[in-house]
Nucleic acid binder design. Structure first.
Length: 296
DNA sequence: AAATCGTGGGC
DNA sequence: TGCCCAAGATT
């Protein structure tokens, strides 16, 4: 267990909340009165996808499906189309499945219990707490990659975020303000600090509200020790091929034959393997006459 | 538990 | 240009 540092445990959280009041971005899912469903949609879209790309899709999505029941009643193919090019389209499928679960098991209301939230498809440890906190106004520690990076630097004096651990929740809870309403804002505020100031590549320490409390700065900005985390390749991978195939099917008005998918990728074996994996994932469906389409 | 799963913008 | 990175979840 980490004991809260006296240097940090009083002031840092309060300072970060005050900074947020002046520096926060005006994002639509932060509008006062947005319901937990709107927050859930935003959180799933934001998993590994930048804010700028999410914003227009989120607006269109909420116009079209303002409630879980509305999304639950929609065929998966339409949902995949509306997801557009946000990436990782299995998230669209899972969000629809979550909407169905909410409708069938929770009377159409997004649950406020972290465990019930985490039981929903596509909702993991981060998203469950984010919805409980930002959507339901609960005091909850919320830990994403931004928060892990801020804690690594501010608290532990290290340059880079450690991989997720159970102790992350205690680390961030130790910094949270006592007042519940401020603690709720603290959870967004730390994420915002990590997104705008304490960024991965070139941290803007000159603009940081807690630079005088920062263990990393006080230690002289030591470089990261140990192996650099390997970045995922993309070009030529199945991920790229799946994306190409889905791109063709999203654009198609009607089911297409195998020949129509050939331009998506030259290597026939890889193309076939990826098409098969898309079928397995339920992102593509084959009609009775052998044509391919987004699932109906 | 390491690998897999899209996409595009910034440097 | 090519690499790095972005509010993770799942198996």
């Amino acid at each position: 267990m980490t004991s809260p540092s006296p240097r940090l445990s009083g002031p840092a959280g309060e300072v970060i909340v005050d900074w947020y009041a002046t520096a926060a971005r005006d994002l639509p899912w932060r509008t006062p009165g947005v319901d937990p469903w709107a927050v859930l949609v935003s959180e799933v879209m934001l998993q590994q996808t930048p804010v700028a790309r999410v914003e227009p899709v989120w607006r269109a999505w909420m116009d079209r499906w303002p409630t879980p029941a509305a999304l639950a009643a929609t065929p998966p193919g339409e949902v995949i189309r509306a997801w557009g090019k946000l990436g990782y389209p299995r998230r669209a499928l899972r969000l629809r499945e979550a909407a169905i679960a909410v409708t069938e098991r929770h009377g159409g209301a997004v649950p406020d219990d972290v465990a019930a939230l985490q039981a929903l498809p596509g909702v993991g440890t981060y998203t469950a707490r984010a919805v409980a906190c930002f959507g339901h106004g609960q005091r909850q520690p919320v830990v994403d990659t931004n928060v892990r990076r801020v804690v690594a630097r501010l608290v532990h004096g290290r340059a880079e975020a450690a991989p997720a651990r159970a102790s992350d929740l205690a680390d961030i809870s130790a910094l949270a303000p006592r007042d519940d309403a401020r603690a709720v804002r603290f959870s967004v505020a730390v994420m915002e600090l990590g997104a705008l100031v304490c960024v991965a590549r070139t941290p803007r320490c000159g603009a940081c509200p807690v630079r005088d409390l920062c263990a990393w700065r006080l230690a002289g900005y030591p470089a990261h020790e140990g192996p650099a985390r390997r970045v995922q390749t993309f070009t030529g991978t199945d991920r790229q091929v799946r994306g190409r195939l889905l791109d063709v099917l999203r654009a198609a008005e009607q089911p297409v034959d195998a020949a129509a998918l050939e331009p998506a990728w030259d290597d026939a074996a890889q193309r076939a393997r990826c098409l098969d994996s898309l079928l397995t994932d339920g992102l593509v469906e084959q009609t009775s006459d052998g044509l391919f389409t987004l699932p109906t």
